[in-house]
C-alpha cells in the first residue's frame, strides 16, 4: 500500500502523476511552463554553462542496446517533497512547506545563498545568475500574475500557484480538473495528471494508487508529491 501523507490543516494536498508510458518527450510542457511563469529565454550558452532555467525539463535515457533500444523520457519538475531537503537548509525561511502540501519559495525573502539548490537531489531549484531579459517584442507577453524574479534569488516550479490561487481564493470549492498547471494543460498525450490528493475521487488520487507508480530517488525518503507511472519492460 502506497503511503500518502495527509496534510492536517488545509482542505487540499496538491499532487501530480506523470505517466511515462505516455510521454513522447515533445517538450510542450517545458515551453508552456516557460511562458506561463515568466521564465527568461535560455540561449545556447545558458545550456553550455549549465545555467539554463527550466522549471520542468525532460530528461532522456536510452534503454537497452541496439537494435532493441528505446528512448525513455522523464519530465523532472520540483517534486514538492513532504520531507524536503531544501527547506531545512534555508537560513532565512524563504522556502517552507505550506498547508496545501506545496513546497513554497518566497522570492522577496530569498537572499541567494543557494543552499537549497545544492541540497535538492532532483536539481529542481534554479538560481538567477543574471537579471532576466526578454526581447523587446516579448515584453508584453509576460504573465501579470507571476512575479518576475530578479538576479540573485532561487526559483523553481510552484505547481502554478497563481492558478491554484485564482481557482481557490476566498475559500472557493474547486472541482477536480477544474484547473491545471500549464505543463499539464499543454501535454498532448495526457501523460500528466494534477489534482487534490485529499479528494479520493480525483483523477490524480486514483492514478496515485496505480501499480506502475514509483517515485524518483524514493530511497532518499523525501516523500515527493509527484509520482511517475512506468511499465517495467522485461524485453528492453
Amino acid at each position: 500500500m502506497a503511503t500518502r501523507t495527509q496534510s492536517t490543516r488545509a482542505d487540499h494536498k496538491w499532487g501530480m502523476v506523470i505517466d511515462l508510458d505516455r510521454c513522447t518527450g515533445c517538450q510542450a510542457c517545458v515551453i508552456a511552463c516557460q511562458s506561463e511563469n515568466n521564465i527568461p529565454l535560455n540561449d545556447q550558452s545558458a545550456f553550455l554553462d549549465g545555467r539554463a532555467i527550466e522549471w520542468i525539463r525532460v530528461e532522456r535515457y536510452w534503454e537497452g542496446d541496439y537494435p532493441d533500444i528505446k528512448a525513455r523520457f522523464l519530465p523532472v519538475l520540483c517534486q514538492h517533497c513532504d520531507n524536503a531537503p531544501c527547506e531545512s537548509v534555508c537560513p532565512v525561511y524563504a522556502t517552507y512547506h505550506n498547508n496545501e502540501g506545496l513546497n513554497v519559495q518566497v522570492y522577496n525573502r530569498c537572499v541567494g545563498t543557494r543552499f537549497c539548490g545544492n541540497n535538492c537531489p532532483y536539481h529542481a531549484r534554479l538560481f538567477n545568475y543574471w537579471e532576466p531579459v526578454w526581447p523587446e517584442d516579448l515584453r508584453n507577453q509576460l504573465n501579470p500574475d507571476v512575479t518576475v524574479r530578479t538576479r540573485g534569488i532561487m526559483e523553481k516550479c510552484t505547481f502554478c500557484i497563481q492558478r491554484i490561487r485564482r481557482s481557490t481564493r476566498g475559500g472557493k470549492q474547486v472541482e477536480d480538473q477544474a484547473f491545471n498547471p500549464a505543463c499539464v494543460q499543454a501535454c498532448p498525450t495526457d501523460a500528466m495528471t494534477f489534482g487534490d490528493l485529499n479528494n479520493p475521487d480525483s483523477r490524480v488520487s486514483q492514478k496515485w494508487e496505480d501499480e506502475r507508480a514509483f517515485r524518483v530517488l524514493e530511497a532518499l525518503g523525501t516523500n515527493p508529491s509527484v509520482k511517475y507511472l512506468k511499465q517495467v519492460d522485461a524485453h528492453a
Binding site: 496545501e100 522577496n108 500557484i161 490561487r165
Partner: peptide, 8 residues
C-alpha cells in the same frame, strides 16, 4: 496568512 496567499 500563508506567505503564498499574496507572494508568488
Amino acid at each position: 496568512t500563508d506567505c503564498t496567499t499574496c507572494h508568488y
